[in-house]
Amino acid sequence: HERALMVNRLQKLTRMLRVHPDPKWKQEQQELIKRLK
């Protein structure tokens, strides 16, 4: 369940980064990718 939330968050971040590349979001995205591996 928590994994699904993280995947959701990651997808949302990816969409937001396409619109507005924010370093903070980029960092969070990298963190999520690490944790999901």
Score class of each variant (00 low, 15 high):
H20R: 11
Q11L: 13
Q11W: 13
R18D: 06
V7G: 08
K12H: 13
N8Q: 15
L32I: 09
H1N: 13
L13Q: 01
V19F: 13
E2H: 08
K26T: 07
D22E: 07
A4N: 09
E2M: 09
E28I: 09
W25R: 05
Q27K: 13
I33V: 07
L10N: 00
E28Y: 05
K37L: 13
Q27I: 11
I33Q: 03
E28V: 04
L5G: 08
I33Y: 06
L13F: 00
H1S: 13
Q27M: 14
Q29E: 06
E31T: 09
K26I: 09
E31H: 07
Q11N: 13
H20W: 11
K26M: 11
T14F: 08
H1A: 13
K26G: 03
A4Y: 11
L32R: 00
K24G: 03
L17E: 02
Q27P: 01
R9T: 04
T14M: 10
E31Q: 08
E28F: 04
K24P: 01
H20G: 04
R18H: 05
R9W: 05
D22V: 06
Q30H: 05
W25V: 03
L32F: 01
N8D: 12
P23G: 05
V19T: 11
L32M: 02
V7Q: 05
L5M: 13
T14S: 10
W25F: 07
R9I: 06
R9K: 04
R35A: 12
L32W: 01
H1Y: 14
Q29C: 12
E2G: 07
R15Y: 05
K24Y: 11
L32K: 00
I33S: 00
M16N: 02
K12R: 11
P21R: 08
K37D: 05
L10W: 02
K26W: 07
L5F: 08
K34D: 05
M6G: 00
K37C: 15
L5I: 10
E31W: 07
I33M: 04
K34V: 07
Q30M: 13
Q30F: 07
M6P: 01
I33R: 08
L5Q: 15
A4V: 10
Q27F: 13
V7Y: 14
L36P: 01
T14Y: 10
V7C: 15
Q27T: 11
L32S: 03
Q27E: 12
K12W: 15
L17N: 05
L5K: 10
M16K: 10
V19M: 11
K24M: 10
L36E: 01
